[in-house]
């Protein structure tokens, strides 16, 4: 029998098949990267918390958000845009102004909201407070290491984070007027 060369397979439809698959993946793909504001919750303990030494009033920055999404910071009505700068002033006061914190080490931000506060407002407030910390940390890292905070090595980042520790305490919501 004479050996005949096998006829070449027509690969013209290969592109069609690949296109079909491609379109399937194009349609099903969701490109959303998960991102958001990270927080750590305090551990749950049924027992009464042990007596804590009282915190000086000047070290506490009280942020209240009521059910109309209005902000009250240290007993004054405040706009959301001003919160970041006020928080920065409070954290990096170093005892200069009498009603603001003594040191970043000692300051506390107390955040309290109403049960009727909208989630959007809550995230916005958290965002502004985080922005305050991030900016202070960036400034300090530029001063010390000449680089922004997120570009530092692990040890350097720890040093800065210890210098400006994030202290946001969230109280149980109450009915706020």
């Amino acid at each position: 029998m004479a050996r005949r060369a096998a006829p070449e397979i027509n690969a013209g439809s290969m592109a069609d098949i690949a296109f079909l698959l491609l379109i399937f993946f194009l349609v099903t793909t969701t490109m959303d990267v998960d991102s958001g504001i990270s927080r750590k919750l305090p551990p749950y303990d049924e027992r009464e918390p042990p007596e804590q030494p009282p915190i000086k009033e000047r070290n506490i920055l009280r942020v209240l958000v009521n059910s109309q999404d209005l902000l009250l910071v240290d007993d004054q009505y405040m706009k959301l845009e001003d919160l970041k700068d006020y928080a920065k002033r409070h954290i990096s006061n170093f005892g200069k102004e009498d009603n603001l914190s003594e040191s970043p080490e000692k300051h506390v931000i107390s955040l309290q909201n109403d049960r009727g506060t909208s989630y959007e407002m809550y995230v916005a407030v958290q965002n502004e407070l985080t922005a305050a910390y991030n900016e202070l940390r960036d400034e300090e890292s530029l001063k010390r290491f000449g680089r922004k905070f997120n570009l530092l090595t692990e040890n350097q980042a720890k040093e800065i984070a210890d210098y400006y520790p994030m202290k946001i305490s969230e109280a149980e919501p109450v009915k706020l007027k």
């Binding site: 998960d34 991102s35 958001g36 504001i37 990270s38 927080r39 750590k40 919750l41 305090p42 551990p43 749950y44 909201n113 109403d114 049960r115 009727g116 506060t117 909208s118 989630y119 959007e120 809550y122 995230v123 958290q126 965002n127 149980e172 919501p173």
Partner: peptide
């Protein structure tokens, strides 16, 4: 959802604390 009220979120956070799931992320 951004229209959700904080009451529900707070209850949820309390449940998470009880379940020892302390690392959270508010998706935005």
């Amino acid at each position: 959802d951004k229209t959700v009220k904080m009451g529900l979120i707070t209850d949820l956070k309390f449940e998470l604390r009880r379940a020892q799931a302390l690392k959270i992320n508010y998706s935005t």
